[in-house]
């Protein structure tokens, strides 16, 4: 295969990754890693470097659309970023000492978990009573709905913060945004309405991925020949996705995608178990 063919196929793949990632809310990274490793036989370390770039691209690319709606809870995102960035740096550091097959298996497990999380019932209820810490940290806020501004309050701040640290470690170790874990922390644990948790999670993914991306860049995991089709493709896909989202309900697509991603995950786990990486 020539470089030109490789680039063009990767460009199309990255476009689809960005499109599906933004439509399903899973982010571009989860498609980029299997595409590069299973599809092209690229070493998983290069794939992780590319996936981090894909995560930042999807996050920043779709954030400008979310920003207009004003539902991102910046205070909450910033507070939790202490946890995710520390986790991301730790994750990127332990990645060097982790065998690539273990990383592949872990990636598969996180992928299945993300698929399940995407299909679960979403929290739409806004709490009226928050925990003490939520007042101290000024985390309670309001968000616009069709019925006007709705106030929401938070609980289990400590538990949410702990889950975020784990999300950060996984993000640094695997190169993905681990949006599913972030939403688990905010949505299920801290009881934030999902519209707020989704956009706030998207805000955090970019910062978390940037924290580990610098480590990976310096370690030589980011190859220019792989990076440029991934950046252009994923950004284009995420842009199309955010335009499409306002016009369609991707419920069916989400289910199909989650089933597909589960098969990919099983293949990653199997190959990792067989020491193929």
């Amino acid at each position: 295969m020539t470089i030109l063919t490789f680039t063009l196929i990767l460009l199309v793949g990255a476009y689809l990754a960005g499109l599906l990632g933004s439509l399903t809310g899973l982010g571009g990274g989860v498609v980029v890693i299997p595409l590069l490793t299973l599809g092209f036989g690229v070493d998983i370390r290069y794939a992780i470097g590319a996936a981090l770039l894909a995560s930042i691209a999807t996050s920043s690319g779709s954030a400008s659309a979310y920003v207009k709606e004003g539902i991102t809870n910046i205070r909450l995102g910033m507070f939790l970023e202490i946890a995710t960035t520390i986790g991301a740096v730790i994750g990127a550091l332990i990645a060097v000492y982790t065998p690539t097959n273990t990383i592949a298996i872990l990636f598969g497990i996180v992928l299945i978990f993300s698929a399940v999380m995407t299909l679960r019932k979403k929290n739409q209820v806004a709490l009226t009573e928050g925990s003490r810490l939520s007042y101290v940290l000024k985390l309670n806020s309001t968000y616009p709905t069709s019925q006007g501004e709705v106030a929401y309050k938070l609980k289990n701040v400590g538990a949410g913060f702990s889950i975020m640290t784990v999300a950060g470690v996984l993000s640094g170790l695997l190169g993905i945004g681990s949006g599913a874990l972030k939403v688990l922390a905010m949505d299920t644990t801290m009881r934030i309405p999902f519209k707020v948790s989704t956009t706030t999670s998207n805000f955090m993914i970019g910062v978390t991925a940037a924290a580990s991306a610098v480590v990976y860049l310096q370690r030589g995991y980011i190859d220019p020949g792989i990076a440029f089709p991934v950046i252009i493709g994923v950004l284009g896909g995420a842009f199309t996705g955010s335009k499409l989202l306002t016009r369609m309900d991707p419920k069916v697509l989400r289910i199909i995608f989650c089933i597909a991603i589960t098969f990919v995950a099983i293949e990653m786990i199997y190959n990792g178990y067989q020491h193929q990486f």
Partner: peptide, 19 residues
């Protein structure tokens, strides 16, 4: 290649600037 890597730097810098 370095122009591409410079683009990579710009991409990584964006969320950091946001903070």
């Amino acid at each position: 290649n370095e122009i591409i890597q410079f683009g990579v730097l710009a991409l990584i810098a964006t969320p950091i600037l946001r903070v």
